[in-house]
Simulated assay, not measured.
Amino acid sequence: MASKSLRRAGVSAQLCELLRRHRVENCKDLLSLTTLEVMRAAGLSHRRALALLQSVSKRCVPPVTTALELWRQNSESYFPTSLAALDKLLHGGLPRGSITEVAGPSGCGKSQMCMMLSVLATLPRSLGGLDGGVIYIDTESAFTAERLVEIAQSRFAEYFSSREKVRQMAARVHLFRELTCRDVLNRLEKLEENIILAKAGLLILDSVASVVRKEFDTTLPGNLSHRSNLLGQEAATLKYLAHQFNIPVVLTNQITTHVGDGGSSSSGEDSGFVTAALGNTWSHTVNTRLIVQYADAHQRQIVIAKSPVAPFAVLNYTVQKAGICLNENDDEDPVREGTDPGLQPIRVRTGFRYEPAKATGGADKPPR
């Protein structure tokens, strides 16, 4: 909540401008000052400076609600993914006001899922959409406008039959390419205004792990602590934005090799398995974790590894021109017995086989 801009906390535009000259731009900046410092920066009396601090402090406190109010809002608390079986398990779709992570190996369709959700968010509510804009932060340069349009025209051919409808959809997806950790964090901390101007109903970060793992070699002293602090700041800001605007926030995550808990192999080497990256602490940060993994050469699987409402479940899908398409012919019950979402093994492609990969290196080293 402290990341909230001063203007949205009820501070006048004139006062905001005075404070901005002293590099005080959000609630956190202001509340870090003493009353005397506020008096000097804003030219206020002691009484008015104290009143300003108290007013802004109250605006940063999360509002109190009741379980009954949440229950009444339940029908509008989810964003349907258009994947009927997945939405049914999730009680309506991706939860608003919280973070959903899609983790898995390269090539399983994480970015395809993000682009499909972007199209869905722009659709009218009568078609299951949010009738809003999309904020899309791309850290891997994986987003392509051509693929976005292809998914739209293939999945909703009737609605996007005219070029004008396609143009309107594409104009509502606001893309930011941020290629360093600092750029990503700076963008998130200044995103409030963009969300308001774009009337955004969905925020996507593809991917949260990409820039972090490039910049932080966790084998070097101090880097793991610095990385944890950065991820903590990102998570806090994302949760604030999700809650403040009551929108679903979707992140993608990479994979890593977990070493040491898988027993020993017959050759005497350490065994291990592939899991979602960024560690166990991060896995507790996300509210919902969906894992995408390989089933065979053509088919992939969505695993509901963590959810406040859904059971552990596995659904088969393929990636087509229309995006992610579930195998509707599956008769098998998708509900399975799960494990710790932070250590859930992920099936990866190894040669021509699809199986959990064996450990070959450090605890945060992606498979080749």
Rank of each mutant, 00 (worst) to 15 (best):
L241W: 01
L202C: 08
T256P: 01
D206L: 08
E193P: 01
T256N: 10
F160L: 11
N246W: 01
L197V: 13
N253P: 02
I195K: 05
D183C: 07
S162E: 09
D206P: 04
G262C: 10
I204H: 04
L205R: 04
L220F: 06
T252D: 00
Q153K: 15
R213D: 00
A152L: 06
F160C: 05
A157K: 15
S225W: 02
G260P: 06
L231H: 01
V250A: 08
T252L: 01
V250L: 15
L202Y: 01
R227C: 11
L191M: 15
D217R: 10
I204C: 06
F245A: 09
L191I: 06
R155G: 03
E189W: 00
S207N: 04
F176C: 10
N186T: 09
G232E: 06
S210A: 15
V211F: 03
V149R: 14
I204L: 12
A170C: 14
E158P: 00
T219R: 15
N186Y: 08
A152M: 09
L224P: 01
E215N: 11
A209F: 00
E164M: 13
E193N: 09
E150I: 03
F156S: 00
H174P: 00
F160W: 06
F176E: 10
S264Y: 08
D206T: 06
L230Q: 12
N194E: 14
M169G: 04
S264A: 14
L230M: 14
I255R: 07
A235F: 10
V184H: 03
I151Y: 05
A242K: 00
G263L: 03
N246G: 05
I247H: 04
E178C: 13
N246F: 03
T180R: 05
R163M: 07
Q254W: 05
E215A: 09
R187K: 14
G201N: 08
Q244L: 13
A209Y: 00
T252G: 05
V149H: 12
T252C: 02
L205V: 14
T218F: 00
E158V: 10
V211A: 11
A198F: 07
R167C: 02
Q153L: 09
R167T: 07
Y159W: 10
I195N: 05
N186R: 12
R172M: 13
L179A: 08
T257F: 05
L188T: 07
R172W: 01
L205E: 01
G222W: 07
H258F: 12
A235W: 02
N246D: 11
S264M: 11
L197T: 10
S264F: 08
S161E: 09
N194P: 03
V250E: 02
S210L: 08
L197R: 14
L241S: 06
E150Y: 11
K214V: 14
L231W: 00
V212N: 01
N229D: 06
S228A: 15
G263K: 10
A209N: 01
L220V: 12
E193V: 09
S154T: 15
Y159T: 01
E193Y: 05
R187F: 00
I195W: 00
H243F: 00
L185Y: 11
L220G: 04
A242L: 03
Q254G: 02
T180H: 08
N186A: 14
E189D: 10
S210H: 13
F245I: 04
N223R: 12
L251N: 02
